[in-house]
């Protein structure tokens, strides 16, 4: 049976992992390669590297990092953050990334999804969407790291992304992100029902139960989290054991 995927997200700045990661036994938790290898050993199914480097001059640092990760890690990984042209995507894929994720640039220039999907295949295009639910329960898409509202509806944008050739949707609920109160399960379920491509849940993981809920109630195909893994709140081997007990298909 196809397994639900667990995806740790690593924030990278200037070629180093940020957000105080405290892994026992890792001498340098800022080394993305060592961290990636560690997560892979622990049973992570995929990895996401999110580049938060502000300046464009630092892009070369990122491709060099991707190359190092690709040499060391034998599970799939996605690279995102600031991908805004076909050339950006090409550089990352050529360095060994399996997928690239698009966010703000796709909202600005939706045809970018088609261009990258046509050139490299839908399987390597993840459309990342940050959205916030307002008091009228309407989900609005935000860009620029959640700072800029776009007026776009989450569900319409996800469907458009799929039609334009995205291979997966990564949905982060800004209402849930950082709360550790669980994923946005009803929005996830609604998305999952309308999409015919895989859906990755993001934002709100705080306990092992939350992952089970994202898969069962949210009908997500994969779940992504950062801090709960980095700070050791949840350990991947224990999480997988727990999900198996919940009768969820897990590798």
């Amino acid at each position: 049976m196809l397994a639900k995927r667990i995806i740790p997200c690593l924030d990278v700045k200037d070629g180093r992992t940020v957000k105080g990661v405290n892994f026992v036994g890792l001498t340098d938790a800022g080394d993305p390669v060592a961290l990636a290898a560690r997560y892979s050993e622990e049973g992570a199914d995929e990895l996401l590297f999110l580049d938060i480097t502000a300046s464009h001059e630092k892009r070369k640092t990122l491709t060099a990092l991707v190359d190092k990760v690709a040499k060391a890690v034998n599970i799939p990984f996605t690279v995102g953050g600031g991908v805004s042209t076909v050339d950006d995507a090409y550089a990352l894929l050529q360095s060994g990334a399996d997928k690239i994720s698009l966010n703000s640039a796709a909202v600005r220039t939706p045809s970018l999804i088609e261009e990258i999907a046509l050139r490299f295949g839908s399987q390597c295009v993840v459309l990342a969407i940050d959205a916030r639910m307002d008091e009228n329960e309407r989900w609005e898409v935000f860009v620029n790291g959640g700072r800029t509202p776009t007026g776009r509806d989450l569900f319409a944008w996800a469907r458009e992304g799929q039609e334009r050739g995205a291979g997966e949707i990564l949905f982060t609920s800004m209402n849930h992100d950082g709360t550790r109160n669980g994923f946005a399960n009803s929005a996830l379920a609604q998305l999952s029902k309308t999409l015919t491509i895989p859906l990755i849940a993001s934002g709100g993981a705080g306990s092992m139960r939350h992952f089970a809920d994202a898969f069962i109630k949210g009908m997500a195909d994969a779940a992504l989290a950062a801090s709960v893994f980095h700070f050791g709140v949840i350990k991947i081997p224990e999480l997988k054991e727990y999900l198996l007990k919940c009768s969820i298909s897990i590798r």
Binding site: M1, L2, A3, K4, R5, D45, I75, P76, S122, Q123, G167, E168, L195, T196, I197, P198, D221, A222, R251
Partner: peptide
């Protein structure tokens, strides 16, 4: 079905035991 079939799935073989495992698919 959600397409692509993407992720880790189980492989079964009646003859080659080493193949009975999870492998990563995208197709």
């Amino acid at each position: 079905l959600k397409v692509p079939h993407m992720g880790w799935n189980t492989v079964k073989s009646s003859t080659e035991l080493g193949l009975d495992n999870y492998f990563y698919f995208v197709h």
